[in-house]
Simulated scan of single mutants.
Amino acid sequence: MKLSLIQKPIHFLLLLSGICCLMLVWRLISSESLQYSFMAWNLFLAWVPLLIMLFIQNYEPVYVNKYVVIAVGLAFWLLFLPNAPYIITDLMHLRYRKGYTLWYDCLMVFSFASVGMYTGLYSMLLAHKLVNRLFGPSFGWTLILGSLGLSGFGIYLGRFSRWNSWDLFLQPHHLFMDILRQAFNPAALKLSVAFALVMVLFYFVFLSFIQLAKHESAS
């Protein structure tokens, strides 16, 4: 039996995102608190790299060379990519919870983190396919593995140094200075590598499931 939602991943991700938002609305109403309202913003940021890739994929050159748009688009995609897996680190907020709401909060935050990760993985798949088609498989894997390594470092900067993607334009000097400091911080490097390895693992599992789905649909 074919699952039509799998053939339309954007619709599937929109559905999952909607479910997450409904969970959040119920949490805000039942608790009469805005404590977890930031989850909606974080999920939106997780969608940004995917929206960038969808724009590049459907771009029709008019006045600007297509390769210039692709290069600039991939740069912005890489800049915002850490926001997708970053939601996993929001699990740390659960340590402040007590009582019966802990279990609902666990399910809600885990759902947001999962959808954020899936959204990022799909954007990576689109980037991978695009670069493979234009420049070959070797360059494609170089882009993906390099972006995963940089994203691991980006997650660390976001969680521990509290930088945002747009700070590259708002506070470039302070951001670069902190990047230089953290580049020689053993704890930062260890956590960045850990984040990157987890994302590599997730991406390979993601590719495996895609291959399995293709095999099942062909049989």
Rank of each mutant, 00 (worst) to 15 (best):
L45W: 09
S17G: 12
I179C: 01
L175V: 06
Y59N: 08
V64A: 05
Y67C: 01
S219F: 05
P61S: 05
S161G: 01
S147K: 08
P9V: 10
Y59H: 11
F209R: 12
Q211D: 13
I56M: 15
L121G: 02
P9F: 09
M39R: 10
A187N: 10
I144N: 05
W41L: 08
L16F: 12
S192I: 07
Y63L: 10
M1L: 03
P61H: 06
L22N: 06
V115E: 09
L148T: 05
L54I: 11
H173C: 11
I29H: 09
F44L: 15
F206P: 02
V198H: 11
H215N: 14
M53N: 02
C20L: 06
Q35R: 15
V193F: 14
L150W: 12
I155Y: 07
S37R: 14
L201C: 08
A188D: 02
A183F: 13
C21G: 10
M177Y: 04
S30R: 13
F160G: 04
C20H: 06
H215M: 11
S161K: 15
W103P: 04
F184D: 11
H128V: 00
R162F: 01
L125R: 12
L189N: 07
L34K: 00
F135C: 13
K2L: 13
L34I: 04
F110T: 14
S4I: 14
P172F: 02
A40C: 05
